[in-house]
Design a protein around this nucleic acid. Structure first.
Lengths: 146, 146
DNA sequence: GTACCTGCAAACTATTTGCAATTGT
DNA sequence: ACAATTGCAAATAGTTTGCAGGTAC
């Protein structure tokens, strides 16, 4: 499904003809090890632990680069934190976001175009985009809850 | 429609039995003068201009209070800024957010329950809530655009 | 050698908190 | 008096930038 093979990020970046320096490659590998979604805080901590010599600035610069390359999607959480999601930022999709573990599952085929069009027309609004995210508990976290 | 009469915020807060000190009352009046949606930055600037003696902290404390009272809704914009919206934070609704002027229009009767339920069931997810916001240009900004 | 990359420290932005002084009752 | 509220300054959190040195062809 939405499973990315390890280091696919790295491969995708290189396929785009980007030459990556060693620190950046290392950061990207660490990102890949974090799963499909992570916060800046988690990444900074992981980098600090695994590559203590790499500075914060380089981490942020790499995130920016991956975002610019459309390899990483940025989601604002209600609490203000930023969640980065690997996968398919270029294809229109929505999210199931787990309040428990933070896992993010992507949903394609949104089917909201009609609703967006209807509401926009009704309000004289010209829609340019929309967001739709579902928050809740994933199957695993539902089990853990009891 | 979603027009709030001036100072309705103040009235609503007092109806809840909250005793408001002068600074807070003044801040709430300024909020009311900003329309139905505003960013923290806009409010801080307005307060600094109209009531230079009131400090930032008090503004933030008042925003927090109004949010706790469910009189103000907080929306995270893509750029990370916080948008506060007056009106009906307690009733489930969605937004039309104008990319031009920042106006926010609320939409009731979301009709997404079936979609949320279908997608959640399909993924073994237990939905607890969802967001749905439409971004675009309001009628006025469409005219200004040309 | 040239252009890019790096870590560091400092700068910045947005928000929160400690606290002594002030206000309200 | 007593408790709540205030402005201020300092603290915090998250992110960005300037820069001198380092790396890669």
């Amino acid at each position: 499904m939405s499973t990315e093979s390890p280091d696919s990020l790295l491969r995708q970046a290189e396929e785009r003809g980007i030459k990556l320096a060693t620190s950046r490659r290392r950061i990207i590998q660490i990102i890949s090890s974090l799963g499909t979604a992570f916060t800046t805080g988690k990444l900074l901590a992981a980098v600090a632990r695994q590559e203590p010599t790499i500075g914060r600035a380089t981490v942020f610069r790499t995130l920016q680069l991956l975002h610019d390359l459309h390899l990483l999607e940025r989601i604002r959480l209600d609490n203000g934190r930023v969640l980065y999601v690997t996968g398919h930022p270029h294809r229109h999709h929505h999210h199931l976001i787990c309040n428990g573990c933070g896992e993010v599952r992507s949903l394609f085929g949104c089917g909201l175009e009609a609703l967006v069009a209807a509401w926009s027309a009704q309000q004289g609004f010209r829609a340019q985009g929309h967001t739709f995210d579902i928050y809740g508990l994933c199957a695993a976290c539902q089990r853990d809850e009891k």
